[in-house]
Design a protein around this nucleic acid. Structure first.
Length: 125
DNA sequence: ATACTGACTAATC
DNA sequence: TGATTAGCCAGTA
């Protein structure tokens, strides 16, 4: 059970132009209580790879924007994928950015979770 | 081993 | 409806 590799695998499956939440990723990793660790994995371990910008918190807020440096880098990457990002008026600092989960949230179902379980077993992670 | 730190959430108030 | 509190648990010191 390598939680970080699982996070990396799950992040890699987030569809282009969609976003996933920390809790959702934790759930798909068979670790529903590890939402915080998902953030830790992405921040310190770089587990998200090229897809870390597609991860937001449960209210659609880009809570990890700070880790992408100034200039709303995370938001820019999302917009580059066609995701509509609100906020981030580069004027004042402390302004948060967010997306509409209803529209851009990655919809995962039971079968998706089962697919990941199979992958985890196959890859022994 | 203990203490503190989070890119979090869900439950309360 | 918005703010607080309380669980959460892998890393780090």
């Amino acid at each position: 059970m390598d939680f970080y590799k699982r996070v990396g695998l799950v992040c890699g499956q987030i569809p282009y132009g969609k976003v996933a939440t920390y809790g959702q990723i934790a759930l798909l990793c068979q670790k529903p209580q590890n939402a915080r660790q998902v953030g830790y994995a992405l921040n310190k371990k770089g587990a998200g790879g090229e897809y870390a910008h597609r991860v937001v918190n449960g209210r659609g807020i880009l809570s990890g924007a700070g880790a992408f440096g100034e200039g709303g880098e995370q938001g820019r990457r999302l917009m580059a994928e066609g995701v509509k990002v609100f906020g981030g008026n580069s004027k004042e600092k402390g302004n948060e950015q967010w997306v509409e989960l209803e529209e851009y949230g990655w919809k995962t179902a039971m079968e998706d979770a089962l697919w990941f379980v199979d992958q985890f077993k196959r890859l022994e992670i």
